[in-house]
Design a protein around this nucleic acid. Structure first.
Length: 734
DNA sequence: GTACGAAATGGC
DNA sequence: CCATTTCGTACC
């Protein structure tokens, strides 16, 4: 379907609509200059105002949609890369429509590697000049010549490295005319993963799951939910699905929530398939990114492992997407185009007609409901692949068997800790709160330290000697005297954070080697990686950590997990609080006893009768999902009803609130709208701007889309510095 | 998203 | 009063 200006009778110039990377609803029209050939999906460079941008041709236009005089010519077609395929174009439109984002901004997500559009520059290489002889031969020179004897070209540094000589030896041979500089074809296609290498032996449950997946791959659209307890070997199962897709000659995308997981993951992949997959995430340098992008487009790259943005790669023939840890909130992008990569992966599978496999030990309620309703096929892996039993979960009722005042660990837990450490095994204490104490107040006047920007308490970080706001990053030094009444030494820390638990451990088990893991650890991600390794090798007796310890890394020696405050996180008004709490505590207690022998998990709670805590204590996943689904159904919350939030930001808090109220008044069905101020929304300062959210509820997702679109039409125009942001991702709420 | 002119702030 | 920052708008 090609056309240029001769394609029509020549009287009218051909115009095409082009998606340009600006926040407008429509595509812009451009003229196709004589002799240029473009088709829908062509990647083009076009003038836009004073600059030049990269866009995608959406369609041919029948009549000009814009004044003839304003039409500009397309400057260039990138024809070294294939045009975006029709199914990807459909996907982009779908995503733009669903997220209420400008289509050009969605298209931009595909075009994020500018380098990829030009062919890779050929590398300078060296090759032996045929028949050339050198008069003065040295040992080093002889070694180099050995490698180039076969006449193949090498890179200069590659040759020097292989021969074990310095690059100057190679330079010397070039100047003597023995070697010549040639241009080498840049990077050959990466080695292909081998699907038929022998995999690990599988349990019967794994085998059954693999059979179902294999049977579906290559037979059109299907979605599977691989629902397996921690340690049940989900990875091995979906690796077999990957192998099947590769066997069928198709490409595979493996989505992971955390880039920190990839190095471990890539090793496992290499063990199974004998080659590394291509990587795609924000830390991959531009040249490598460009190679992956081109490889995906050409089909040379068979498997990509990536973060959520990999979903927008222009695969030539994608045959499977695996979304690992599908419940993970990292799949959701909040800024710019707000989307959930897990849901959009399903959409991409639906549009292009291939299999999507979601995997998790603690699937999201949405996915469980989709499985119950038959939209997804659930593959259950109820047992650990190693045969190890799941940990015993032991309740600690803090109302009757809690610690004395000023302590946070119950005697029962302390006893178990001491026992575990003296056995030479490791213990993990989980508390999802950074710092020393979440609230500081004055004993004399009752003054509470609050963030001047947000309406949250300042968290004391004793190690650093500062009071910090965990919302906006504001911080101040801990004062000696109360700023309100002026009395000295009257400030008291209320409640525990991980630092305070570490202090308590140092006091009661002074000989234990303790390590605190939290995301604000000084030293950054590298330090964190090292600490993880130290733990895995047994270099710590007790690990005290925030939610960081729930994810990824295996701690083979871990035998005991203590949850310091199981109720934390259930308190707030978030309708997903129960789900999040269940997921994180399951994942953390699942760390116990995978290898180190029968594990135990202790849950300190004030609310043992809360349905979430009850299900956790009974180690009964089904009970949790049953009660949660019932509760969601009763209140019309997702996935049964849909939520969206309109986010209002502006420099002035009162003005923002006024505007938000005006928009809510303009809404067609006011009974389904709630306006949340910064305090209630637990959000206030984002890049210096206050945010308000109006929550909208509707029974079905598409009602919500239509509703918001209508609403935005009738809403007053934002004045001055006010901005309106619509967030319609079904997973997103606060 | 970004570049531009217009308007508003701010220092001497 | 001019220099610098901030805001509002158009971009085909």
């Amino acid at each position: 379907m090609l056309f240029d200006d001769e394609a029509l009778d020549g009287s009218l110039p051909v115009t095409v609509s082009v998606l340009v990377p600006v926040a407008v609803d429509e595509a812009y029209s451009y003229r196709v200059p004589a002799g240029m050939r473009v088709c829908p999906g062509s990647i083009v460079r076009v003038p836009l105002g004073p600059r030049e941008v990269i866009g995608v041709v959406r369609d041919i236009e029948e009549g000009a949609t814009v004044a003839r005089g304003r039409l500009k010519d397309i400057l260039h077609v990138y024809d070294d890369v294939p045009p975006l395929k029709a199914d990807l174009m459909l996907f982009l439109d779908w995503v733009a429509n669903w997220t209420l984002s400008p289509p050009g901004m969605v298209a931009r997500m595909v075009l994020r590697s500018e380098e990829a559009l030009e062919p890779e520059a050929p590398l300078p290489g060296v090759r032996k000049v045929e028949g050339a002889e050198i008069e003065r031969i040295t040992k080093a020179r002889a070694r180099v010549l050995e490698f180039v004897e076969d006449g193949f070209a090498w890179t200069k540094s590659g040759l020097a490295g292989a021969a074990g000589v310095s690059p100057s030896v190679v330079d010397g041979l070039i100047s003597h005319g023995v070697l010549e500089v040639v241009s080498m074809p840049a990077s050959p296609p990466p080695p292909a993963p081998e699907p038929d290498r022998e995999g690990p032996s599988l349990t019967p449950a794994q085998e059954a799951a693999v059979d179902s997946l294999r049977a579906a791959i290559g037979k059109g659209f299907s979605v599977f939910l691989i629902d397996g307890v921690t340690g049940s070997g989900k990875t091995e199962v979906y690796f077999e699905a990957v192998a099947e897709a590769i066997r069928q000659g198709r490409q595979v995308l493996l989505l992971l929530p955390e880039i920190s997981l990839t190095s471990q993951f890539l090793d496992r992949f290499e063990t199974r398939f004998g080659a590394r997959p291509a990587e795609w995430h924000s830390d991959v340098p531009p040249k490598k990114r460009a190679r992956v992008w081109r490889g995906a487009a050409s089909g040379d790259v068979k498997v990509v492992v990536g973060a959520r943005s990999a979903l927008f790669l222009p695969f030539m023939d994608l045959g499977l997407i695996v979304v690992d840890e599908e419940h993970d909130t990292a799949y959701k992008q909040e800024d710019r185009v707000s989307y959930n990569a897990r849901d959009m992966a399903v959409v991409r599978g639906k549009i292009s007609g291939f299999t999507v496999a979601l995997a998790s030990a603690t699937p999201s309620v949405e996915s469980q409901v989709n499985a119950l309703q038959g939209r997804y096929t659930r593959l259950e892996l109820p047992e650990r692949a190693s045969g190890a039993a799941l940990p015993d979960i032991i309740p600690i009722d803090m109302r009757t068997e809690g610690p004395e005042r000023g302590r946070w660990l119950a005697p029962k837990l302390v006893e178990a800790l001491a026992e575990t450490v003296s056995d030479g095994a490791q213990a993990l204490l989980f508390l999802n709160r950074r710092g020393y104490a979440p609230l500081t107040l004055c004993r004399t006047c009752g003054h509470r330290f609050q963030c001047p920007n947000c309406s949250t308490w300042l968290v004391e970080h004793r190690f650093r000697g500062r009071l910090q706001c965990h919302h906006c990053g504001y911080s101040e030094p801990v004062p000696n005297a109360c700023p309100s009444c002026g009395n000295a030494d009257t400030l008291v820390a209320c409640g525990p954070g991980v630092e305070r638990i570490a202090e308590e451990i140092a006091d009661i088990l002074p000989d234990a080697h303790t390590l605190v893991l939290s995301s604000d650890l000084p030293g950054g991600p590298d330090r964190l990686k090292r600490e993880m390794k130290v733990i895995a090798e047994g270099g710590a007796d007790i690990v005290i950590g925030t939610q960081l310890v729930a994810k990824g890394h295996n701690f083979p020696l871990m035998r005991l997990v203590g949850v310091v405050d199981a109720d934390l996180g259930l308190a707030h008004g978030d309708p997903r609080a129960g789900e999040r709490t269940f997921q994180i505590i399951s994942q953390v207690t699942g760390r116990a006893g995978r290898i180190a022998g029968q594990g135990r998990g202790f849950l300190q709670t004030y609310a043992p009768e809360h349905p979430v805590i009850e299900a956790l204590l009974a180690n009964d996943r089904d009970a949790f999902y049953k009660s949660e689904i019932e509760a969601r159904r009763a209140s019309g919350l997702p996935p049964f009803g849909r939520l969206a939030a309109l986010i209002f930001s502006g420099a002035d808090r009162n003005q923002t609130a006024d505007f938000a109220r005006a928009v809510v008044r303009a809404a067609p069905h006011d009974q389904s709208v709630t306006l949340l101020g910064p305090a209630e929304a637990a959000l206030s300062l984002v890049r210096g701007r206050h945010r308000f959210r109006a929550l909208v509820m509707a029974p079905r997702a598409f009602d919500l889309q239509a509703y918001l679109r209508q609403w935005l039409k009738v809403a007053p125009k934002p004045r001055a510095s006010l901005r309106l942001q619509v967030d319609v991702d079904p997973q997103s709420f606060l």
